[in-house]
């Protein structure tokens, strides 16, 4: 293996380790919480990135999947005393089943119809959640008690009750989810997905069971989003239907496109755009509407000029900038240097 191909993963590992160890001591509690959100939502953006970037399926309903995962986790956490990792696994698996059931009929659709049907399903799920509400310690299937005056908080893992500790816990879970996805990408599913993205007809002709692998992608994305939902439940302590808005699924797609649906770093960048910037702007007193506008412009920019997102485009832009600067300081260059 060439030494260069080890550099990028090594840098990634180093950055994550640095974040894990030092973020709680460098940043105030407010920003530690912001970073926790980045860690949690990077799992969600990773899932959507796999769907969009690797398989070519656009889902406009990942926000609803996250809400489902949070609901399931909250229900289990209130109903049982199971250890947190078990709860995360359970909510991931249940969300995976639900997500796959929901995705199954949609898989026969082509790109646009698939996106629209996921939007419709997300809308339906949102209304169901608005009516059954989120568990708040009550009894019965929904675990919701509308008359309660004192709502108990959703518990966190016993080793990670404080905010800094929960940040570290989230980073670990996120790393595990990234590894899971990486294993998929390097293995047979990854190759099948790449073939499907190239041309589904050709993949079929080549003997690949496209339905199975598309389903697998849905299942994987739903699983990790379900696990992220479990983290959200513990992070927020209190869930209600206001926490998950309709527009969330759309902004999620926007940041995934901007960050780059093709790379794993892109998923983290997307989560940073979505969550960290929001907290930053709030701290500075700038309206979050500017962020919405930025995302809108970002979507247009990415789709028209840089389909691979900021992560791939940024190095190219920086390289171009560097060439420009060099050109300013050096003698009139030979014609080759003026290519861009």
């Amino acid at each position: 293996m060439e030494p260069r191909s080890l550099v990028r993963p090594a840098v990634a590992v180093a950055l994550v380790a640095f974040a894990f160890l030092f973020i709680p001591s460098i940043f105030s509690l407010y920003y530690v919480n912001a970073w926790t959100q980045v860690a949690i939502w990077s799992i969600v953006t990773l899932g959507l990135g796999v769907l969009v970037g690797r398989v070519g399926m656009v889902s406009l309903g990942q926000g609803a999947v996250l809400a489902m995962g949070a609901w399931v986790a909250a229900r289990i956490l209130f109903a049982t005393g199971l250890p947190y990792p078990v709860v995360l696994l359970a909510s991931g698996l249940i969300t995976m089943v639900l997500g796959t059931l929901v995705g199954l009929p949609a898989l026969r659709m082509s790109g646009l119809y698939l996106a629209l049907i996921t939007l419709m399903l997300a809308g339906a799920i949102t209304i169901v959640l608005q009516n059954i509400q989120f568990p708040n310690g009550g009894h019965g299937f929904t675990g919701y008690n509308g008359a309660t005056v004192h709502i108990p908080p959703i518990r966190r893992p016993s080793i990670a009750t404080t905010d800094p500790a929960f940040f570290r816990y989230s980073v670990i879970v996120a790393v595990l989810m990234f590894v899971l996805v990486l294993v998929h990408l390097r293995g047979r599913p990854g190759r099948a997905w790449a073939a499907i993205r190239q041309s589904e007809a050709a993949a079929l002709a080549g003997g690949i069971n496209t339905t199975l692998y598309k389903l697998w992608a849905f299942a994987l994305a739903s699983f990790i989003t379900g696990v992220a939902g479990g983290l959200v439940a513990g992070f927020y302590h209190y869930l209600n239907s206001l926490t998950f808005a309709t527009s969330d699924s759309i902004t999620l797609l926007a940041v995934v496109l901007m960050g780059g649906a093709y790379s794993m770093t892109g998923a983290v960048v997307a989560a940073f755009l979505l969550k960290f910037l929001q907290q930053l702007l709030n701290d500075w007193g700038v309206s979050p509407d500017w962020l919405t506008i930025l995302f809108g412009i970002g979507v247009l920019q990415v789709l028209t000029t840089a389909p691979r997102g900021i992560v791939e485009q940024m190095p190219k832009d920086i390289a171009r900038l560097a060439r420009l600067v060099r050109g300013l300081f050096s003698r009139p260059a030979s014609p080759q240097e003026h290519e861009s």
Binding site: W290, G296, I297, L300
Partner: peptide, 16 residues
């Protein structure tokens, strides 16, 4: 998807 970009821009502008 590109029209979603326009949607987001307008949403932000309207609220501002």
């Amino acid at each position: 998807t590109a029209t979603l970009g326009l949607l987001l821009i307008l949403l932000g502008v309207m609220d501002l």
